[in-house]
């Protein structure tokens, strides 16, 4: 089962997405509300996947994605960091082109299927 860490400052969103993705076969091993706790959680839990909200209160989501990509991972093929936001992709166009993160999915389109599609597109 793929392990997942959810990083988002909204507790309501973390609760909902945890329920949704658990139902779709993900093992949610942790949640973090800030960039600082996300880094600690990532080192301790070594999740395969990190779902990362771009608009965190303490750090820029793109900077954090950069750091998280370089942390050791439970997956030999490397870490997957999926950026998300309730804003649409066009808001972050240049930064999404530059980011080291795996990809971006808007919050209202998040699902196990969307994540799988993203990973399939990446390896294609």
């Amino acid at each position: 089962m793929r392990t997942l860490l959810i990083v988002d400052d909204s507790a309501a969103f973390r609760r909902q997405i945890r329920t949704l993705l658990t139902g779709e076969g993900f093992d949610v091993v942790g949640e973090a509300a800030t960039g600082a706790t996300a880094l600690v959680a990532c080192r301790e839990l070594r999740p395969h996947l990190i779902l990362l909200d771009i608009g965190l209160p303490d750090v820029d989501g793109f900077d954090l994605a950069e750091q998280l990509m370089h942390e050791t991972t439970g997956d030999p093929e490397g870490r997957v960091v999926v950026l998300t936001s309730s804003r649409e992709a066009t808001t972050y166009r240049a930064r999404l082109q530059r980011t080291a993160a795996t990809g971006f999915i808007p919050k209202d389109e998040l699902s196990g299927q969307a994540i799988d599609a993203l990973l399939a597109a990446r390896s294609a």
């Binding site: 909204s10 969103f13 909902q16 949704l20 309730s86 209202d108």
Partner: peptide, 22 residues
């Protein structure tokens, strides 16, 4: 608007999807 109403609506839409699948 983004931090408030939009976040709530997005959470609600995910909740509905969970409910629908359950």
């Amino acid at each position: 608007l983004h931090d408030g109403a939009q976040q709530r609506f997005v959470s609600l839409s995910i909740a509905l999807r969970v409910l629908r699948s359950r």
